[in-house]
Design a protein around this nucleic acid. Structure first.
Length: 248
DNA sequence: AGTCGATCCTGCAGGC
DNA sequence: TGCCTGCAGGATCGAC
């Protein structure tokens, strides 16, 4: 199995290895290893979209299956042609625009810093742009911004090289810590392939903490609407950029 | 070309 | 009790 950002794929063994089965979990998608004779109670059958027989066995008591389960159907499965990724590997054609994630040894840090600083948009929009950097979603973006003391609407083009580098380091720290704790689970929708929850939600400093004191300075954290979703920040540590302030 | 807001979906929580 | 509204958010699309 291979991965690029939030996409993962299985090369189809048809003798040519030119095509892959690509999956994206979206918001609520799950890939689960299931014994069909013993389906966990939490799996809602009306959310089961695709099942794969992994053994080929006709004996259901021995069968292990890979299930693609998705409540909100933001995820998906599709077959795609593989193309050269420019580094001796292959990547599905439809996701070749997705950048590598910052933990990937081949992540091009210089390119990320250069391209980000050309953007006229706010910094959080850039962090969520998978063609610049992949693997960062709303939660990890908020966490990295909190650690870097940056407001989500700070203009990319006005950030110094060192600030961007520091932010990238914060993104990496968040990802490494989240992985070590098994990811972020709020409920049964967020589990690994064996149905197990992660514990990173207990380590969040920003996301979902509106009304709570900032872990750094004690000021009350706030929630704001951003890109039709939520942004959480400390109004003291992560000041609104002057150019966006109203009034004086 | 770059930027931005709207949109898709379902289940659940909260208000009245 | 039950209806209604808002919210969760990755990625894409059309508008400007």
């Amino acid at each position: 199995m291979s991965r690029r950002g939030k996409y993962l794929w299985f090369v189809l063994d048809d003798g040519t290895a030119e095509r892959a089965l690509v999956a994206h979990l979206g918001m609520s998608g799950q890939l689960l290893l299931i014994d069909p004779a013993d389906v966990p109670e939490r799996v809602r059958m009306n959310h089961v979209r695709v099942t794969f027989d992994l053994t080929g066995s006709r004996d259901l008591s021995e069968a292990r299956q890979l299930w693609f389960v998705d409540q909100r159907t933001f995820g998906g499965l599709f077959v795609d042609d593989l193309v050269d990724d420019g580094a001796g590997g292959a990547v599905p054609m439809s996701i070749c625009h997705i950048a590598r994630d910052p933990l990937d040894p081949l992540f091009d840090e210089a390119r990320f810093v250069r391209e980000l600083r050309k953007r006229e948009s706010g910094i959080k929009r850039a962090l969520l742009d998978q063609s610049l950097i992949s693997g960062v979603g709303n939660i990890y973006a908020d966490e990295a911004l909190w650690r870097s003391r940056l407001h989500f609407d700070r203009s990319c083009s006005r950030l110094s090289r060192s600030v961007v580098t520091g932010l990238l380091e914060a993104v990496r720290d968040v990802m490494v810590e989240a992985l070590a704790e098994g990811g972020t689970s709020f409920d049964d929708l967020y589990v690994n392939v064996n149905g197990e929850s992660g514990y990173f939600d207990r380590s969040l400093h920003a996301y979902g903490r509106a009304g709570d004191p900032c872990d750094r300075c004690g000021r009350t954290m706030v929630r704001e609407s951003f890109m039709n979703r939520s942004s959480f920040r400390c109004p003291n540590c992560q000041r609104r950029p002057r150019s966006l302030e109203t009034g004086t």
